[in-house]
Computed example of a mutant assay.
Amino acid sequence: MLDQMSGSVTHQQKLPATEEQIIEFLKEHNELEMILPVLLGVIVTSRFQLRGAYALLVNLAIAAIFNQIFINLKKLDPSATAISARATTITPEPDTNSKYTIVHSVPGRIRLKIPQLKEDPDFATRCQQLLHQDSHVIHVRVNRAAASIVINYHSQGLSDFDLGLRLLSIMNKAEREE
């Protein structure tokens, strides 16, 4: 009985030490906060062969999950200031089937690669107009030559998943309104 109690005490003492080790590791390697969501997003979308809208949603969901994990880890140790704000950068895969690819994302700003912008000037105009109509969008910049669009938005009260759904809805509407 005494051994069982001492065993549980030892186990309880190791858990906080493990949490502290994780926090210290993240402090020393704060770039992991940017790399892990991207890496896992690429692995998941590649493994399940997701493209276009589905890949966008999966990447946004993974970024949101990791963001919440890092927020919770920061709450465990208030001195964990070395962990930077969430930022996601994805290098687009050379895939012609992909409709939308997140190139870069930080809270309040997202850049998407959309090959159709380069090929279809009317689509680019419709996207820009529809995005400007959205209440969360602050500014939109379309670069047709680079086939990319930068969207600045109000991030308060808008989860990454909600943002993804809004953007997909707008892009689908722009495609349908030919």
Rank of each mutant, 00 (worst) to 15 (best):
N59Y: 04
I102M: 00
Q13Y: 08
I69S: 05
P37E: 01
L57F: 08
E119M: 06
Q13I: 10
Q133R: 13
I62P: 00
T101I: 12
A124V: 01
K74A: 03
I83K: 00
V137L: 02
I22Q: 10
R176P: 01
F25H: 11
I71L: 09
L15K: 15
S8G: 03
G52W: 01
R141Y: 12
E24S: 10
I102C: 01
V150N: 04
Q13S: 15
V44R: 02
L73S: 05
A64K: 07
H29D: 13
Q21H: 13
K27A: 04
T96I: 08
I90C: 04
L39H: 09
Y153H: 08
Q68L: 12
G41Y: 01
D122M: 11
I114M: 07
A174S: 06
V44L: 02
H132S: 15
I22S: 05
I102S: 00
L40R: 08
K74E: 09
A85M: 12
A87L: 10
I71V: 15
S169C: 11
G7E: 11
C127I: 09
A145I: 09
L57R: 03
Q49H: 13
A55L: 04
T45G: 03
H29A: 13
S46D: 08
I114G: 01
E93Y: 06
I62E: 01
V106G: 02
G41C: 04
E28C: 04
V9R: 08
M1P: 12
L26P: 01
D134A: 04
T96D: 15
L40H: 12
T81M: 10
V103P: 02
A17E: 11
P115N: 03
V137M: 02
I43A: 09
L2M: 13
N97I: 06
I23G: 02
L50E: 05
I170H: 02
D3C: 07
N72D: 15
A85E: 14
A85N: 15
I149T: 02
N152A: 14
D120G: 05
V103R: 09
N30V: 06
V140W: 03
N59A: 07
D162L: 02
M34Y: 15
K118H: 12
A80C: 05
A80G: 06
E175W: 05
A82D: 10
A64G: 09
T91E: 13
S6F: 13
I35D: 10
L60D: 00
P92Q: 07
L131K: 01
Q133L: 09
V150R: 05
T88K: 11
V42C: 10
D122C: 10
E28P: 03
V150C: 06
R126Y: 04
V58Q: 08
D77L: 03
T45S: 06
E31C: 04
A87G: 14
E178M: 09
E177Q: 12
E31P: 02
A64Q: 15
V38A: 10
S169P: 04
L26E: 00
G157L: 09
A174I: 04
L167Y: 03
L56C: 01
S46P: 02
M1S: 11
L131S: 00
P94L: 14
S159K: 00
N97F: 11
H104L: 13
